[in-house]
């Protein structure tokens, strides 16, 4: 499932006529800092803080429409692209070079994921296997190489292929394209909005309840939280990292990208469908069910619709930190085999 999603993402990138361009030049921190200022002043308004706001272009993945090299990027920055929204700029070659330096520094930027404390513990794969099959009872739901339960996703699909690590339901966040799910809660900005926004609707009196002084509601640098989408991409084509696997074990219900959550609709005729939400609008929802059927419903025909909580239980209080590290090591060892 996850690997299919991966393939889809990769296919989309190429289908869109874009290309992933690797960095050629090497840059100093001074270049990056200088470029950041110019980027903030001139580029971010359209391209976004993380360089991913324009369809088909994503600086955080090194994805561009026409540029094939850093020199191309400098040319595009200075001259613009005819008949497109990309204007020319008054930058010198040196200045444009610093902007490229900054754009390149965006690649792999992962936002402000909080790293679980245990990630630094060294796990023991053999002990992890024992825990996986014994105390953790993970095999009840998850299969390894086709052996085990089916209610959870196969962690190593039998029919080969790598990268299948725990996608789908309750799966591992951080796979490509997934908005990196914050471990300890919603992104600060979103969280503030969630708390304050609902109450405000309808009322909305000026300066009314809820964080009249911005920033008050926790870490105000919310920007970074929105960032992670980019982080995945090329990098994410590898399986999730240990921190991500760990998080999926101890905090499986943390909000993750919609495509890794289970969406359920119940029609007025009491037919239930579950799967991945692909799109929605005011009047309809589109999803892919567990047998990979593409489904679409008018909301007017539905009794109920929405995301389901993850079926995966949290192991936060079941396994010790060391035991979690062991299981993580075990799962990673499967991948390298």
């Amino acid at each position: 499932m996850a690997s299919r999603v991966l393939f889809f993402v990769v296919a989309m990138v190429f289908a869109a006529g874009t290309a992933i361009v690797a960095q050629q030049h090497s840059y100093t921190q001074e270049d990056i800092n200088a470029g950041a200022k110019l980027y903030e002043a001139n580029c971010g308004n359209c391209h976004g803080e993380n360089g991913d706001r324009i369809v088909g272009i994503d600086f955080s993945k090194g994805t561009f429409k026409t540029a094939k090299s850093d020199d191309d990027l400098i040319r595009v920055i200075r001259n613009g692209v005819p008949n497109s929204g990309m204007p020319s700029s008054p930058y010198s070659e040196v200045q444009a070079n610093t902007v490229v330096a900054y754009m390149r520094s965006l690649v792999g930027k992962t936002g402000n994921l909080s790293v679980p404390a245990t990630a630094s513990l060294t796990g023991d794969a053999a002990r992890g296997k024992t825990l996986f099959e014994g105390k953790g009872d993970c095999v009840r739901c998850h299969a390894i190489n086709g052996v085990g339960g089916t209610s959870g996703p196969d962690l190593v699909p039998a029919a080969g292929g790598r990268g299948g690590q725990a996608g789908g339901r309750g799966g591992v966040p951080g796979v490509p394209g997934a908005a990196a799910p914050p471990a300890g809660g919603a992104p600060p900005a979103a969280g503030a909005a969630a708390g304050a926004g609902r109450g405000g609707r309808g009322g909305g009196a000026p300066g009314a309840a809820g964080a009249p002084r911005g920033g008050a509601a926790g870490a105000p640098r919310g920007g970074a939280a929105g960032a992670p989408a980019g982080g995945g991409g090329a990098r994410g084509a590898a399986a999730p990292n240990p921190q991500q696997i760990e998080r999926s074990i101890v905090d499986p219900s943390a909000e993750m990208a919609a495509q890794y959550r289970v969406y359920q609709v119940v029609t007025k005729a009491n037919v239930t469908a579950r799967g991945t939400l692909l799109n929605q609008d005011t009047f309809s929802v589109q999803m892919r069910d567990s047998s990979d059927k593409l489904l679409s419903f008018w909301k007017a025909d539905l009794k109920d619709y929405g995301f389901m909580p993850s079926l995966m239980p949290s192991y936060k209080d079941v396994l010790t930190q060391q035991e979690v590290a062991d299981v993580v090591s075990y799962l990673i060892s499967l991948r390298s085999n």
């Binding site: 903030e40 308004n45 803080e49 900005a189 609902r198 929105g226």
Partner: peptide, 17 residues
């Protein structure tokens, strides 16, 4: 000819981004 704006803000929609 260069943009003259300051630091662009984040834009948040409802409860997610």
């Amino acid at each position: 000819g260069a943009q003259f704006t300051g630091i662009f803000p984040t834009v948040n929609f409802g409860t997610d981004t």
